[in-house]
Every structure is written in structure tokens, then in C-alpha cells.
């Protein structure tokens, strides 16, 4: 099991992805995206959902910033990074190594 230090800061080449126990869903009852974890429901705002939808273990943080800029015009990279760091500290996001990217984790396919 790869150990992550909760206080670490994501780098531009990191490839964040949702942890195995976490699901990102659209909740039609509330009209909001939600992050579902073993014991918690987190209701997301539009930007939070947009960032997490791009955290697929293949895109780097830099690439995620580029996509968001294409969509919203201006994007505060530090804010995105802080958001990713916060969720990584809670172990809801995992940071894949640059070389080990490409989303090749056993047992991952087709879930979530």
C-alpha cells in the first residue's frame, strides 16, 4: 500500500484520481454533485465537481488546469491545488506517480 503524507502538496505532473472507496455522483434530488465515502456525503459546488470529474488518474494537475481554463476562462491554479490537497489529506483522492499514471490499478476497471 502506497503511503501518502497528508500535508504534501500536489505537483503539476501528479495525476490525481478518486480513491477506491469514493464515488462521485450527480444527485438529482438536490440538483448537485456529491462525493460519497464510507461514512460521509459531501455536497459539492459546480467548480468542485468540475475538478473531481477530471481527476481520473490519467490527467496531470497541469492538464486539469488547462481543461478548466478552456471551460471557464480564468482559473486559480492555487485554489485547485489546495482543493486537491485537502481531499488527498482525507484520502478521498490519491496521487498517482507520473510514470505509474495511466490509471493501471488492479481491480479499478469499471467501478464508480
Amino acid at each position: 500500500m502506497r503511503s501518502t503524507t497528508p500535508v504534501q502538496t500536489a505537483r503539476g505532473a501528479d495525476r490525481p484520481r478518486l480513491a477506491r472507496s469514493v464515488r462521485l455522483r450527480f444527485d438529482p434530488a438536490r440538483g448537485r454533485h456529491v462525493l460519497l465515502t464510507p461514512e460521509a456525503v459531501t455536497v459539492l459546488n459546480g467548480t468542485g465537481a468540475a475538478v473531481l470529474e477530471l481527476c481520473d488518474g490519467r490527467r496531470t494537475l497541469d492538464e486539469i488546469g488547462t481543461v478548466l481554463r478552456g471551460r471557464y476562462g480564468s482559473v486559480d491554479d492555487d485554489e485547485v491545488r489546495a482543493f486537491v490537497d485537502r481531499l488527498t489529506a482525507r484520502r478521498w483522492l490519491e496521487i498517482g506517480d507520473a510514470e505509474a499514471g495511466r490509471g493501471q490499478r488492479r481491480g479499478q476497471a469499471g467501478r464508480g
Partner: peptide, 8 residues
């Protein structure tokens, strides 16, 4: 339950 808003 789903219609009511239950997620978990």
C-alpha cells in the same frame, strides 16, 4: 428512499 434524497 432514493427519491427522497438518500445517497448512502
Amino acid at each position: 428512499a432514493r427519491d427522497l434524497g438518500v445517497l448512502q
